[in-house]
């Protein structure tokens, strides 16, 4: 089946790539501190308590450290949001980028639930990842539907 892929604005390419790199930075740090907890620099009293979050039962998903899953997510996202990937004509590559972000946001919502309701503390670096993922979702929901022809790109009169 032939599907057309529209080009997207430069700002979207630059923004998504930058956000993915920032997310990758956060997730690298969280992965390092998962395996070397002493390297974690964060408040440990009050609402902000990174160690309490990163060592909680919710820090694992199906036995895999969430930090490692985050690292995997952002390695993939850096590749999918690179200018080369944006230029690709493969329709499914762009669908994959969008799907990855939507699934990532869903996972982020679960983690926010875990932090607020189950653990009762927030992790600053995790929140950084959450904000980056949310920002990626905003940008991609703005450009991907148009890029893939899911919506009418004509400005509303």
């Amino acid at each position: 089946m032939s599907r057309t892929v529209e080009s997207v604005p430069r700002w979207a390419v630059a923004t998504t790539f930058l956000l993915s790199v920032i997310g990758l930075g956060f997730s690298i740090y969280l992965t390092i501190t998962h395996f070397q907890p002493h390297a974690l620099v964060c408040a440990d009293t009050g609402t902000i308590n990174c160690a309490k979050v990163t060592t909680s039962a919710q820090a694992y998903f199906l036995g895999i450290p969430v930090a490692v899953l985050g690292l995997f997510n952002f390695v993939v996202m850096v590749a999918l949001t690179s200018p080369w990937a944006w230029r690709a004509k493969n329709y499914w590559l762009h669908v994959a980028r969008f799907a990855f972000t939507v699934v990532g946001m869903g996972f982020v919502l679960w983690l926010i639930y875990a932090e607020i309701i189950l653990i009762g503390n927030l992790c600053l670096y995790c929140t950084g990842v959450h904000i980056v993922t949310f920002a990626l979702l905003i940008v991609l929901t703005r450009v991907t539907p148009t890029q893939l022809g899911w919506v009418d790109s004509t400005p509303l009169e």
């Binding site: 529209e6 080009s7 997207v8 604005p9 200018p83 944006w86 230029r87 148009t146 790109s153 400005p155």
Partner: peptide, 9 residues
């Protein structure tokens, strides 16, 4: 590349 899709149908 990239041109505002708003200008393209």
């Amino acid at each position: 590349m990239a041109k505002s899709p708003a200008n393209k149908k």
